[in-house]
């Protein structure tokens, strides 16, 4: 009896000694390690039996939790980089497992198209999903936006927006189909889109991400408006944003929520040293600031 107790005590102490380094090790595992390797959806389908929807939902949740953990770092913490290609691969698997999983589509659209710019991949998945979620206006809405805003395929964008309008009965999409599908309406287009996106999610991390982008685009729009006003008044493009402020077209240089500084490039487009994404500023910048 006494021996047994001693034995148990020894084992417990050993375990207690192992736990801190073990937990530390688990924490520092990279995302790929944390999630393990999720096989391609086409392969998973064969072993998922009747748990396809569950598997899809659980990998999407894993991505969400990971993303939430990475994007809500406290100010004094180091902001760890987000493994976007990893997320992209996993969402791809999820969609192949359950093409109707809206969380996967939504997350891919809200985060991936902006941050990874795999527009064609995203559209491919969305159009695959559209075949199954044939009642949902969000998917054609997303494809429409991607085609119009990123790929500048206005014809396809208009077609998709019309489909979204049919499915939803919402006049917003008819508006989108006509009004913003040209180069100069680009920023406005994105703002309308992001506003709708931001309203329709419940996830705080994603909301925050969208709000930041919206804020940046609103700032871009303000500069663009000032630039256009300047051009119409003086008959030439301004040299810099500073000039716009000087001439009273802007009250102050707008703040870039991504931490960069806005500038005008040679053809007059509004740009930022942050490239409107986190994580670019710490790298040696090759941008020429005017």
């Amino acid at each position: 009896m006494k021996k047994m107790l001693l034995y148990l005590l020894a084992c417990t102490i050993l375990l207690a000694a192992v736990i801190p380094p073990f937990v530390g090790y688990q924490k520092q595992k990279s995302f790929a390690e944390q999630l393990g390797v999720v096989p391609r959806g086409e392969v998973l389908r064969y072993v998922a039996a009747d748990q396809k929807e569950f598997l899809a939902a659980s990998v999407v949740l894993k991505v969400l939790i990971y993303f939430g953990g990475r994007s809500q770092a406290l100010p004094n913490q180091v902001q760890l980089p987000v493994d976007y290609p990893g997320i992209s691969r996993i969402l791809h698997s999820a969609v192949k497992l359950d093409p109707r999983n809206m969380d996967a589509h939504y997350f891919a659209q809200a985060i991936l198209v902006w941050d990874v710019k795999q527009i064609d991949v995203a559209n491919g998945l969305l159009e695959y999903g559209m075949r199954y979620r044939d009642w949902d206006f969000y998917l054609p809405f997303f494809v429409g936006f991607n085609s119009g805003y990123f790929l500048k395929d206005y014809e396809k964008a208009a077609r998709m927006y019309r489909r979204a309008a049919e499915l939803s009965g919402n006049p917003l999409f008819i508006q989108l189909a006509g009004r913003y599908l040209y180069e100069a309406g680009r920023t406005e287009h994105a703002i309308v889109y992001l506003t709708a996106m931001e309203k329709s999610t419940r996830n705080e991390s994603v909301k925050k991400n969208l709000r930041t982008r919206l804020e940046a685009l609103v700032a871009v729009r303000a500069i663009e408006n000032a630039r256009d006003l300047f051009a119409s008044r003086f008959g030439r493009q301004p040299h810099s944003i500073g000039e716009l402020v000087q001439r009273g077209m802007l009250s102050s240089i707008p703040h870039d929520p991504y931490g960069g500084t806005f500038y005008l490039d040679e053809d007059g487009s509004v740009r930022s040293t942050s490239k409107l994404a986190f994580g670019h500023l710490n790298q040696p910048s090759t941008e020429v600031t005017q």
């Binding site: 929807e53 569950f54 939902a57 949740l61 969400l64 939790i65 999983n101 809206m102 969380d103 939504y106 997350f107 329709s200 999610t201 419940r202 996830n203 994603v206």
Partner: peptide
């Protein structure tokens, strides 16, 4: 609750 867009669907799935 963790779902962004399909809480009920996720509950039913689970």
């Amino acid at each position: 609750q963790l779902s962004m867009r399909q809480v009920t669907e996720l509950a039913l799935t689970l």
